[in-house]
C-alpha cells in the first residue's frame, strides 16, 4: 500500500498541521505562561524570572542562565508514565533549551536566570514541538527580550509520503517504508533551524524536502503565535 495514494488517516494534506489552540497568561504565579493544543497534544508552559541565578556556581557573569524542564504528566499517555524526571524528559529538556536559547537575547540578562517548565497534560505525538511553541509563547508573555517567536513541528515520512505533524497513529505505521519522525524548531525571523532530531530511515533528498515542508508549516504556526500575543493586548487586557 502507498500512503501517497491512500492519504493520511485524518484526511489532512501532507503539508497541513493539526488544528492548534494557543492562549497565554494561564498561570497567575508565573511571569509568563501559556496553554497550547496541537491536535490531541496539550502542553501547559510557565516561565519564572529573570531572577538571580542559583546555584551560584552556575551563574554566568555576561549572560542569562536558562533552565528548562520537560515533564510528561503520568496520565497523559495511555500506558501510565512514572511521575518525575526520566532519561527521555532530561534529554528533551536539554534540546528544547538549546533551541530556545537561540531566540533569546541572553547577553541582556547577566548573572540572571529563567526557569521554563513544560507540563505535557495530554500526549498524542509531537509533544516536544508543542512544548517549544508553548515555551516560546510563555517567554514572550513574560516579556523576555527575544529575536523572535519560535515555532516547531515534526516533519517526516509515512511510508512513501513526506508530510508534517505526525500523529501517534502515523508514527506507529510499520508498513512499507515505515514512519520517520523529524522534529524541528525554526526561527522564521532569521531562517535558522534550532532543533533537529530524527528517528527512522530516510534518504538525503527526502530529508531535505521534509525539512523544507516543515519550515513552511512553521511559518504558519508562527503567524498564529504572533496573533496569540497580539490578541492579548488588542483586547486591552492588563498584565496581572
Amino acid at each position: 500500500m502507498s500512503y501517497k495514494k491512500s492519504g493520511r488517516f485524518d484526511k489532512r494534506k501532507p503539508d497541513e498541521t493539526r488544528p492548534m489552540e494557543m492562549s497565554i497568561g494561564v498561570l497567575p504565579n508565573c511571569q509568563g505562561s501559556s496553554r497550547v493544543k496541537v491536535g490531541d497534544t496539550i502542553v501547559i508552559a510557565g516561565v519564572y524570572g529573570p531572577k538571580k541565578a542559583r546555584p551560584k556556581h552556575e551563574e554566568e557573569k555576561d549572560r542569562l542562565l536558562i533552565k528548562c524542564y520537560y515533564d510528561l504528566v503520568s496520565f497523559s499517555v495511555t500506558d501510565r508514565a512514572r511521575p518525575g524526571p526520566s532519561r527521555r524528559s532530561t534529554e528533551l529538556g536539554l534540546v528544547i533549551k538549546n533551541a530556545l536559547e537561540r531566540s533569546i537575547f541572553v547577553e541582556k540578562y547577566p548573572r540572571s536566570m529563567i526557569e521554563i517548565f513544560m507540563e505535557i497534560v495530554q500526549a498524542d505525538a509531537g509533544s516536544r514541538c508543542a512544548a517549544i511553541i508553548a515555551a516560546s509563547l510563555a517567554l514572550a508573555d513574560a516579556g523576555i527580550e527575544m529575536r523572535g517567536l519560535m515555532p516547531a513541528v515534526a516533519c517526516g515520512k509515512i511510508d512513501d509520503l513526506i508530510c508534517v505533524d505526525l500523529t501517534k497513529a502515523e508514527e506507529d505505521v510499520h508498513e512499507g517504508g515505515g514512519a520517520t519522525d523529524i522534529p524541528i524548531a525554526y526561527l522564521p525571523s532569521h531562517d535558522e533551524i534550532t532543533l533537529l532530531q530524527l528517528d527512522g530511515k530516510i534518504s538525503k533528498e527526502d530529508l531535505i524536502e521534509a525539512i523544507k515542508m516543515g519550515t513552511v508549516a512553521c511559518k504558519k504556526i508562527h503567524n498564529q503565535m504572533k496573533e496569540t500575543i497580539a490578541g492579548k493586548y488588542e483586547k486591552g487586557e492588563m498584565k496581572k
Binding site: G46, P83, F117
Partner: peptide, 17 residues
Amino acid sequence: SGEMNAIADNEFEPGRP
C-alpha cells in the same frame, strides 16, 4: 502520588518530591 511541581510556585524546587 503528587508533587509540588516547580511550575506552580517560584519557591518550589524541581526534582524529586
